[in-house]
Design a protein around this nucleic acid. Sequence first.
DNA 1: CGACTATACGGAGACACTCTCCGTTTTGTC
DNA 2: GACAAAACGGAGAGTGTCTCCGTATAGTCG
Lengths: 207, 207
Amino acid sequence: MSRTATSSARAPRADARRNRDHILDAAEQYFSKHGVGGSLDAIAKQAGVGAGTLYRHFPNREALLAALLAARDEALMSRRDELRTKAANAADALDGWLEALTEWAGAFDGLPDPLRAAAATSTSPLAVTCEGFITTTEEFLHAAQRDGSARKEIRARDLFLVALATSWVRGAALADGTSAAALAGITRNGWELNSSHTRGVSATPAD
Amino acid sequence: MSRTATSSARAPRADARRNRDHILDAAEQYFSKHGVGGSLDAIAKQAGVGAGTLYRHFPNREALLAALLAARDEALMSRRDELRTKAANAADALDGWLEALTEWAGAFDGLPDPLRAAAATSTSPLAVTCEGFITTTEEFLHAAQRDGSARKEIRARDLFLVALATSWVRGAALADGTSAAALAGITRNGWELNSSHTRGVSATPAD
DNA sequence: CGACTATACGGAGACACTCTCCGTTTTGTC
DNA sequence: GACAAAACGGAGAGTGTCTCCGTATAGTCG
């Protein structure tokens, strides 16, 4: 009302911005090492701020997570653009996008859980992010369905959930890493039409 | 050493057995209502025992869960036998088994998480149960692979994890229940050879 | 520069949960 | 009925979440 009409509130104070950044840095480290379940008070301490300061900036774990992921959104967006222009065909584009999503959801240990919850509630800071990515999934899926490489009955939201689920399974610290590829293969065969992908494990070739 | 050579320890005392049952009953109720994350102390209180008693019988949440699931194992076993004898073919048998597994893993809200952890660690009371079911999955899978209805590169452990993951996704209280069927369809197409299942959502028939 | 106010800070503390320890009680046996 | 083994219960230590409010500081204005 007084100065800038564009933003309703005035600019944040310098120390607030500084502390916010410190918290974000500490959280990035802490979640990377201990998973998304790590202690928030510990993060505050590591960031050199009081618990109150942390909770004022991020009212709950989800908000903190959302802010952390916002920094990674850009990478996922550019991956999307890359797939849009460089993919050989619609099926590979969709496959690549789902793989990127899966990797994104695996940024921190335990991340798929809050993401799944967010995808269901839609009243969470993470929900916005999820919805955006579901829309992108829809774009790739529709393209693949139009050119006949993806089954018609598949829905974007379900594929998004499958990507989260894949990430969730991978989080189980499997002794052998082949499960990651195996799941991707099962998923691709799940939505693809008229093809038989044998990712990761090389099947008997042309038996 | 003194009486029965078959069991190393003597029979449990009457009050111990009674309390154990009370705890199990309370846990069944409590986990059903609040999910597997419910407070153990609250369960002890509801069972009318002290916290110490609960932890003596079940040293941790997993042990309690394992005891609770043991009661359900029987149902799953009989489902297995039914599928062995009554299924029209190997593919339907495997599909039915995976659906049964998925349902089993959805007995309580949040159950897939400890199950996944158990499947990875093998040092948990739940791990034994999981391994047994993976073996059964293997049996159905091999049969389907032998008669050419399942892809050769699929592994039983991965399918087991897919069943858990499906249950995990379903736990997200999806507004529309169609996701459950959609995921089952994607999974089936994922492992099946030469077929196009359109479960749940009826696709354009013979377009 | 010095005063004034909105903004932000910090950490003590209320509350919840897990799990252990040990003095007390109960059970089964002789 | 007495005795030892087995089991009980709940207080309390440790850890974590989140709030509240007295205190400190940044930014502004004369």
